[in-house]
């Protein structure tokens, strides 16, 4: 493997800009990081002395905690900042917040923000490494990477797989990052949702569109079931939650009619009984908790790859024992 071709540069903003080789490089790096979380002492010293700020302007449990575990298991020092209870509430701008953090000599920023493009905006203005932990409807690259790793773990490959993303694609940065990552690695991708929850022109991203969940289940090797974003449902995208579950819900009855076992992924948090039924979420083909475990490993890999900065020199140094 050519280290220069897998180098990520300064920031991780989205999978749209990465090459297939860079994405595979992250997944291959994440694999051995899984084992560290199984050790009695879950810590390696590789990021000792690095300071990382987790800047979360939007609510998050899983992603924030997963990043924090990843950072701590690599021995970095971490600070968490949420918008509530910080000077952001007093009207400070994103760039002022970041510049003040820079003035305290930090090394990396993990940012979650409600506006698409916020991570890029920040990355262009500060010298620290910036990792996008979800920006508006744009991208959530580490979520897609952990989905890819989980698919590869359970199905052995990405290339040639048929993966259908089910649900609120319109509002979903997870869907967007997954579509980029999956298509770059050679998977066939489909989406399935009511038309009101699909972006106009979604076909231009190179995906099939299924209007009926039964057809999607018949076609797919894996379903990535998105959360129906209830907080965004006031605008009348669907008639009712019960109606949505009846027409688009991933249920055991529907899966039992599939010609093959379908792997079930969900980025969480789940609305049980809405987009996914409990017997599916807890069923034998669900890898939802494996996704959570893989999330820590993927984030460790990304932090590790960004922190060093010059992997092209690594191979030469390796030979020096």
């Amino acid at each position: 493997m050519n280290p220069a071709a897998t180098s990520l540069g300064k920031d991780l903003i989205g999978l749209e800009r990465l090459t297939a080789e860079q994405i595979r490089g992250i997944l291959d790096t994440a694999d051995p990081f899984k084992e560290i979380s199984e050790r009695a002492i879950k810590k390696v010293p590789v990021l000792r002395g690095k300071t990382i700020v987790n800047l979360f302007f939007e609510a998050s449990t899983r992603t924030r905690i997963s990043f924090e575990f990843a950072e701590k298991r690599l021995s970095a020092d971490t600070v968490n900042i949420a918008s509530t209870g910080s000077s952001v509430q007093k009207g400070e701008t994103l760039v002022d917040t970041a510049r003040n953090l820079e003035a305290m000599r930090i090394d990396m920023v993990v940012i979650r923000h409600g506006s698409s493009g916020a991570a890029q905006f920040l990355a262009e203005r500060i010298p620290s490494n910036v990792i996008n932990a979800g920006d508006g409807r744009h991208e959530h690259p580490t979520q897609a990477l952990l989905d890819l790793l989980t698919l590869r773990d359970h199905l052995g490959r990405i290339e040639g797989l048929r993966v259908c993303i089910v649900g609120d694609v319109l509002h979903s940065r997870v869907a967007r990052s997954n579509i980029w990552g999956l298509t770059k690695l050679g998977a066939e991708v489909a989406v399935c949702a009511p038309r009101t929850l699909l972006p106009i022109g979604v076909e231009d991203l190179g995906v099939h569109v299924f209007n009926r969940i039964e057809e999607a289940i018949e076609w797919a090797d894996a379903l990535n079931v998105l959360r129906l974003q209830l907080e965004r449902m006031h605008a009348g995208f669907i008639p009712s939650l019960r109606e949505y579950n009846r027409v688009f819900g991933v249920t055991r009855e529907r899966l039992e009619r599939a010609p093959r076992d379908v792997l079930i992924l969900h980025p969480g948090p789940m609305n049980r009984g809405v987009e996914i039924d409990s017997d599916v979420a807890d069923g034998p083909h669900s890898v939802i908790l494996n996704q959570v475990t893989n999330g820590v490993a993927v984030r460790m890999a990304v932090l590790y790859l960004l922190a060093g900065g010059a992997p092209d020199r690594a191979e030469a140094a390796k030979a020096e024992g």
């Binding site: 280290p3 291959d28 790096t29 560290i36 990021l47 092209d312 140094a317």
Partner: peptide, 18 residues
Amino acid sequence: LYRDDLTAIGPRPILGET
């Protein structure tokens, strides 16, 4: 991950099994 020269030489993209 226990090397003392990560910043100097950059990360190795693939680690071996422990």
